[in-house]
Design a protein around this nucleic acid. Structure first.
Ligand SMILES: [Mn+2]
Ligand SMILES: [Mn+2]
Ligand SMILES: [Zn+2]
Ligand SMILES: [Zn+2]
Lengths: 149, 149
DNA sequence: TCAGTAATCTGCAACTCGTGCAGACAAACA
DNA sequence: TGTTTGTCTGCACGAGTTGCAGATTACTGA
């Protein structure tokens, strides 16, 4: 994703207007590698701009996706996630806490695929599932078990 | 997925009962490579058993997934798809008509992954997007047709 | 064979995530 | 400034899925 200033120009070049809501969302997305949901962006945005609507967050994300400035990531179930990182990369999802992180896979577009059968396929989306280090270390809690009696 | 008869035994071994609804759904799934949705299974089931409820389809699919007899496939957006093929395989999705087909990818678990950083990841799920031969050759391609089983 | 019981089925409400819509509002521009 | 658009907000609605409760049915054991 380009910088907030560059996005402002890009929006105006398309005949779209610049608004405080959009500028705020540009700032919240810039350099954000947490793959936020619309809801999480809405919460953070509401902190700086009480009254901003969730509808506006969805609209702005849709605009940015349509312009190719961000990508919509789907990791199977749960709300959509938005990704200002448009590098050729893939994702690993913690099935315990839902965290999504970037991974870079080499040779992904040289995989030997059997069964395509004329199907015109483009680059694959690869999602690894697993458990993040944080969840792995807290899954064996020596203290504070919630279900002991 | 095992045969309907074997699934009957597996259900009974778990203290679950065998019902006409379950038997019908076992038959509709067996050898089915169309990655059907709950809704499409419900439509086909309703022909043979008017009055069967969509709720029962969802419940039975959830049971089968919990038992590892089928897999739930998510291809990003739209309803969940259910897959009696439990081989180690991946999927290609037609973005025009929604068709999902199996592909077999060699070397998928030997990919060089950068950024894992201690993240304990298992085998990846790979989804190719593209256009199927039918949609590519048709001048009036079906859009998310109801012909899926 | 036939109750007793426990699991199941069905119908509907409710829930999550996202979109359509309409009227108030505000950015761009002369 | 005033006019023209595009935008924001709030709400209703839609798709997909699950929770729930009462009626129903499959198994069990006499
Ligand atoms: Mn990413
Ligand atoms: Mn499959
Ligand atoms: Zn985690
Ligand atoms: Zn197609």
């Amino acid at each position: 994703m380009r910088s907030p200033d560059q996005l402002t120009d890009a929006f105006r070049a398309r005949g779209l207007k610049m608004t405080p809501q959009r500028q705020l969302l540009f700032r919240l997305l810039h350099g954000n590698d947490t793959h936020p949901t619309a809801e999480s962006l809405f919460e953070r945005a509401s902190h700086e701009m009480p009254g901003i609507s969730l509808r506006t967050v969805y609209q702005t994300m849709n605009d940015l996706v349509a312009m190719g400035e961000i990508e919509q990531v789907s990791v199977g179930g749960g709300p959509a996630r938005f990704d200002p990182n448009t590098d050729d990369h893939h994702h690993v999802v913690c099935d315990t806490c839902g965290t999504v992180r970037d991974v870079y896979v080499s040779g992904a577009d040289q995989l030997a695929i059997d069964g395509l059968d004329g199907f015109d396929a483009v680059a694959p989306a690869i999602v690894f599932h697993g458990e993040c280090t944080q969840c792995a270390s807290s899954s064996n809690p020596p203290h504070h078990s919630t279900k002991e009696n």
